[in-house]
Design a protein around this nucleic acid. Structure first.
Lengths: 233, 233
DNA sequence: ACAAAAGTGTTTGGAGTACACCCATGA
DNA sequence: TCATGGGTGTACTCCAAACACTTTTGT
């Protein structure tokens, strides 16, 4: 089977891409349309792909992300694999797989990644029949999701919360290059699901040597302008 | 192909099983013999298996461990998958796979787990042509290891160090049911790669409410007998 | 002048660290 | 009695948490 030389149709990668809009954590999902002879469904899926025959897992995830956003050098970490035999048993998912891959498919094990991106840098590729959009995390449980992707998002969220906790540098993957302390705190509090004290928070970041003040202020805000900072090193 | 109904010969699980002998962390490895027509090699591999057709990943890892040790309810966590296309390219590994599975094999993606077991409980199954032994971690780099298993052990070690760090309860998966504070400290220090102060360490565990003193002392030691403790809840 | 968010210090309690000697037991 | 590890207290430092008012700017 010639496609066998190109694809390994038993293993895929999926990316849970997080962004921060200044208020909430969001996740990037792809619109999926499944056309039957008489009906057509719409739902959402994670950006992902079957792995190519000579591709490492990290390479496949990286390829998916680059194809989607055009960006390189983004934070991307494998966090877990999912291989429940039932995960590819929904008729809609089977139909979509067969349409997409032109192959009979058994169970697919997927290796899941999280990515963190600066939401303002995202350049969405709308060709390739893909249309991607940001969604708030609390919307996900009510959405129609492909496969077990809702569960994968939850696990990815756990993972990233944990990691942002022990590695504060990762916060800056989500912030714009110039940010205010208030933005940083909003992100920090969102991730940790707390509401921290303004003075204590500023005291804390004051001793993070990698957060450096700029000679620039916010502009166009209807109140006192805040100082801008950048992340260094 | 009938074997296709039983196995998914594209995805496997491997278990990095850690134990603690009172002095050092050890890892459980399986002796592997690869017989050619004229020669035969010996090396070591992680306990693992191809996943069965209707088996979830966790189930497969659990099965491997139960078959090996006869134990149930052991700490077992997926930590990472490995799918480099070159990982199944060594001629020795290919030969072994074909002998073992009676199948032509392409790349195999493996989902790696760590397990923590009380070394004194281990009941080795020596049937099934398997012979397992404990090895010190520093011996591993000098050993002949199957596939990329040496690298998997290192990543598993990183993972478990990290997790024992943030979740001290896991330490008790490695200790015997009755232990002394000194044993606990030796394990703690080994995992964290430090040498901590005796008094400070005892002060710390004194406020771990889940470490409870027994009315029992060590026996048969050529010096003052230490109090025994157990882990509760 | 007022609305809206920016920015600023002090006090307190708990946790980690540094540090040295006596105790109990078996040989 | 000696060798071996078991077991104990105090002082200092650092970090996290609690807590309220003044400043700047646009409308």
């Amino acid at each position: 089977m010639s496609v066998d030389n190109i694809y390994n149709p038993h293993v895929s990668v999926d990316c849970v891409v997080f962004g921060f809009d200044g208020e909430k954590l969001k996740v990037l999902l792809i619109e999926r349309t499944i056309a039957n002879q008489n009906e057509s469904y719409n739902d959402k899926k994670l950006p992902g792909s079957i792995i190519l025959a000579n591709e490492d897992l990290d390479e496949a995830a990286s390829r998916v992300l680059t194809e989607l956003t055009g960006l390189k050098n983004i934070y991307l970490r494998q966090f877990r694999s999912f291989g429940n035999p039932d995960r590819t048993k929904n008729p809609r998912d089977i139909l979509w797989l067969e349409n997409t891959l032109q192959l009979k498919i058994g169970r697919i094990v997927t290796v899941a990644y999280v990515a963190l991106i600066k939401i303002d840098r995202k350049i969405l590729v709308k060709s390739d029949n893909t249309q991607a959009n940001w969604y708030e995390l609390h919307e996900v449980p009510a959405m129609n999701m492909a496969f077990d992707h809702a569960g994968i998002i939850n696990k990815g969220l756990d993972y990233i919360r944990h990691n942002l906790d022990i590695e504060p540098h990762l916060l800056f993957e989500l912030l714009p290059r110039k940010f205010t302390i208030t933005q940083l705190q909003t992100l920090y509090d969102t991730v940790h699901q707390i509401r921290s004290d303004v003075r204590n928070f500023r005291k804390k970041v004051a001793q993070w040597s990698y957060v450096v003040p700029l000679d620039e202020m916010e502009e166009g805000v209807p109140h006192r302008a805040a100082r801008l900072y950048k992340y260094k090193k």
